[in-house]
């Protein structure tokens, strides 16, 4: 490698000067809290007795790994992620396929579809809490008009989980639609024409042409959606506070409670670090998938 010329040195210096303010800000608001939480996870740090006097090593991690409530929250989160991502993918792909063949009014459909995505999750939670209110909600009123007994949407443990899943689907499904539609509309038309002449039916074209060619886009969409679903917090906070009981106690909300209700910051930080590792692993997978898709 040859040494940088004075002009290249000047360019590098100028580049650093331009990025320095942004990097400093990122370090202050992103890097510092992560490092702080990472450090705290190795100490017996509570909000009653804050301090770094008692080094716990991996104690907090071991405690979290053996904590039944934490494992339950992790399990609920896995179920939640599987439910929302799979249902959203099925609906999203179906709508994207239909929209891809639509010529007229595509803009209007887009606008309608994007509306939920533009609403703040807190507002979504509040809105649906009102809509699904057992006595004052419009859904139960509508059901009563056709003679169906009122449903306790957020009060019954089994029902509450699926209600939260449905609200999240309503909120986020258009994200899937938009991403999958972008993928579908970027597919070349010629292989489809070749397949038609080769004798492939619409279903065979979908199975043999669309799905394989969409594989990278589908993988990326699923991964992004999974990463966001794992972190779901606001809807739970507004709608159920993890309840009834622990029926909707997703991991992010559980960690929040461990930190600010149980006041055990050290253990909460250890749990957060474990969650971070899972999400970082998924992000690395996402990055690799995107790189592979680009190479193809």
């Amino acid at each position: 490698m040859t040494a940088a010329t004075p002009m290249e040195m000047r360019d590098r210096r100028f580049g650093w000067m331009l990025t320095a303010p942004g990097l400093a800000l990122l370090a202050a608001v992103v890097l510092f809290p992560i490092l702080w939480a990472g450090t705290t996870s190795f100490f017996d740090y509570t909000l009653i007795m804050p301090g770094y006097d008692n080094f716990a090593g991996f104690g907090n991690y071991a405690k979290a790994a053996g904590d039944g409530e934490f494992l339950h929250a992790a399990w609920i989160t896995v179920l939640f992620v599987l439910a929302v991502v799979s249902i959203q993918f099925a609906i999203g792909l179906l709508v994207a396929l239909m929209l891809n063949d639509t010529e007229r009014g595509k803009g209007v459909y887009y606008l309608i579809l994007l509306c939920p995505l533009l609403i703040n999750p807190v507002v979504v939670g509040l809105m649906w809490r009102m809509i699904l209110h057992p006595t004052l909600g419009i859904v139960n009123w509508l059901l009563s008009t056709v003679g169906i007994e009122p449903v306790n949407w957020l009060g019954a443990p089994d029902m509450a989980f699926w209600t939260v899943v449905l609200v999240d689907i309503w909120h986020q499904v258009s994200f899937m639609v938009v991403l999958l539609l972008a993928g579908l509309s970027s597919l070349p038309a010629e292989p489809y024409e070749a397949a038609r002449v080769d004798g492939a039916s619409a279903l065979q074209r979908f199975w043999h042409i669309t799905l394989p060619m969409m594989k990278p886009v589908i993988a990326i969409t699923l991964l992004i959606r999974m990463i966001f679903a794992i972190k779901t917090y606001d809807i739970i906070y507004i709608m159920t506070r993890g309840g009834p009981g622990t029926a909707t106690d997703l991991i992010s909300y559980f960690i929040y409670r461990r930190a600010f209700v149980s006041l055990d910051l050290g253990e909460a930080c250890a749990m957060a670090a474990m969650l971070l590792i899972v999400i970082a692993g998924m992000t690395a997978l996402l990055w690799r998938t995107m790189r592979t898709a680009q190479d193809d």
Binding site: P188, E190, P191, E193, A194, A195, R196, V197, D198, G199, A200, S201, H208, I209, P212, M213, K215, D296
Partner: peptide, 17 residues
């Protein structure tokens, strides 16, 4: 599919996968 003709396209239109 039922015309039993084969076509070769300008940009070949091979199935990339």
């Amino acid at each position: 599919a039922e015309r039993d003709l084969a076509i070769v396209f300008q940009n070949y239109a091979l199935y990339p996968h």
